[in-house]
Design a binder for these strands. Structure first.
Length: 260
DNA sequence: ATGCCGATTAACAATCGA
């Protein structure tokens, strides 16, 4: 089962490019972030025509997450538990029924958090505390499950081309990294680092200042796997080449292959 | 990097993202 995560930076601007990539990469599941669309505005037909089931959790203008799946989805839930007053659409869950086993999928768009300090950073850390609670609950089920998406976290300096630039940024602040580590340390396997060592691997390049041309990127899109999902991990890679195409997202897809 | 670009909404500038 091939599962991808992709921050598409607007479905209206990216639906054609997204379909081209889906046709080539042929993921069974795509977890999407920043659809920047309400549910009614999501162009579900073009994905359904390709055999995908479509589940969205949209919001007007900003944020928004979705799951595309060629395999059946069950028990879909929307919104990260822990704060009923949170209006931002950043979390969606579903169970995908594989050939051999089912996998609980969590698609997430973690808050950016800048500027630091400030209310947006407070919201990021509070959101990560809720994420940790959900992660604990997932872990206690002792079943294949994963949390994947745009974490807006640069885990280590090796995950940035110019780490010094990000030192005071919400994506790399010690408090951010610690909160991320506390979640990983519950027992999750970070799929890319289970497969690839060392620096120079990025999933985001700013549109500005020729960041892509200079490979001035950061790795902020991650897969965290429960032990039962990690047992099934066969591969993980970043599809960076599509950043060369016209009108790309500022993120590129990251995908895993599971023996599920 | 103090948003230099890009998407979105709502107007034809402001807001947000990382």
């Amino acid at each position: 089962m091939k599962i991808a995560t992709f921050n598409i930076n607007g479905i209206k601007a990216r639906h054609v490019a997204l379909c081209e990539w889906l046709d080539e990469a042929q993921p069974d599941v795509a977890l999407l972030q920043e659809i920047k669309s309400v549910d009614e505005g999501f162009p579900r037909e073009m994905f359904e025509d390709r055999g995908y089931n479509v589940e969205t959790h949209g919001q007007k203008g900003f944020n928004g997450v979705a799951i595309l799946s060629k395999l059946p989805l069950e028990d879909v839930t929307r919104g990260l538990p822990g704060d009923d007053s949170d209006e931002q659409a950043r979390w969606i869950e579903a169970t995908v029924m594989g050939e051999h086993t089912s996998v609980r999928l969590c698609g997430l768009y973690l808050p950016n958090g800048n500027p630091v300090p400030g209310p947006k950073y407070d919201y990021k850390l509070a959101w990560m505390e809720r994420l940790k609670s959900r992660a604990k609950a997932l872990m206690s089920r002792e079943e294949p499950a994963l949390m994947a998406g745009d974490y807006n976290i640069i885990p280590l300096d090796e995950d940035a081309a110019r780490p010094e630039v990000w030192q005071e940024d919400a994506l790399a602040r010690p408090e951010s990294r610690r909160a991320y580590r506390e979640i990983v340390n519950l027992g999750f396997t970070e799929a890319f680092r289970a497969r690839v060592r060392g620096g120079g691997h990025y999933s985001f390049w700013d549109y500005q200042a020729g960041a892509w041309d200079r490979n001035d990127g950061i790795r902020i899109d991650h897969f965290l796997l429960t032990p039962q999902a990690a047992d099934l991990l066969r591969d993980c890679a970043i599809d960076k080449d599509i950043r060369n195409r016209p009108k790309p997202s500022d993120h590129v897809p990251v995908w895993i292959e599971l023996a599920a």
